[in-house]
Design a binder for these strands. Structure first.
Lengths: 162, 162
DNA sequence: AATCAAATTAGAATTATTATAAATTGATAA
DNA sequence: TTATCAATTTATAATAATTCTAATTTGATT
């Protein structure tokens, strides 16, 4: 973890930004919740535990900065809020998401999957792809297994959406 | 156009909703702007021309209703607003989008493209796919052609984003 | 004409996000 | 160390999108 923070710090410095205490606390929260898809508010509340004096606007600005530096990705699942997702180091493509319409959980797919599709799009539409967003909506494996039971909640990877 | 409205009317009736004048005016606007990706506000302003007494809340409610009936799809390109896109009749999959990061234009891809990918996801992740969202961000064919020139604006299919 | 539910309107309320102005911090150089 | 200057942060106000509420209207049915 310290090494990743160190690398992010270098990345900031290389563009003459500083890793202030507030920014570091924010990055730590993101690293500690790598599996989740936190909203700005979520991040704010978690950062407050480490650095109670931080302001919400600072969190927003930090997330925006990290987004510009491609340390995090800003995503939107259609509920009202933006969520922020740490990029896997060395990942040159953005990962995909599986959103369960039953329980609201969000799982990630790290595999590429789109290589061939992107080739087709670049060629047939003459479109130079820089990034992509792919989200599948459906029923997750957990909700399928319990078909018949009434258990509506799962313990892990739950990111409930309004 | 009249036939499509007639079919939407039937669809509403089948779920015991009515095609009120306000709803009809809204549907007409959507049909007349099938190529665009209108925000609720855009729709509201256009509907006002036909039915000046309509309220913004009604437009929101109508769009939400049409979304539930899968007549329109609610999409989100990451700017602050939701956009509403008429579903192609008979299309069992949601079309994809090409968002240009230069000029802000949004083009559509009607081709499926994801068939194989979906098979893999359903099998390997045991996820029952109901819907998907795929958006590519990059440089559109128009902006590529004019590399070198300073022309920043295009006449058609422009959906500028904040 | 009476009735009842669905739909609409206007406007208030909420929620997420961004902007602003004043204060603080940190690095650098005199 | 102290002065200085830009970057950053804070608190708060402002904005923008969307949803809620209460009162009213509409339409179909008795």
């Amino acid at each position: 973890m310290e090494q990743r923070i160190e690398r992010i710090k270098k990345q900031l410095h290389s563009q003459s930004y500083k890793l202030t205490p507030q920014r570091e606390a924010t990055v730590r929260v993101l690293l500690e919740h790598e599996e989740d898809h936190l909203s700005a508010e979520d991040v704010y509340l978690l950062v407050k535990e480490k650095a109670p004096e931080i302001g919400l606007a600072t969190v927003y600005r930090t997330l925006e900065l990290l987004n510009e530096l491609e340390v995090v990705d800003k995503i939107n699942f259609g509920d009202g809020v933006s969520r922020y997702d740490l990029r896997k180091e060395g990942a040159d493509h953005f990962h995909h998401h599986l959103v369960c319409i039953e329980c609201g959980s969000v799982d990630e797919i790290q595999e590429d999957l789109l290589g061939d599709v992107e080739k087709v799009v670049e060629k047939d539409w003459n479109f130079k792809i820089k990034d992509h967003r792919l989200t599948f909506h459906g029923i997750c494996h957990r909700c399928q297994e319990e078909s018949g039971s009434n258990n509506k909640e799962h313990k892990e990877s739950n990111q409930h959406v309004r």
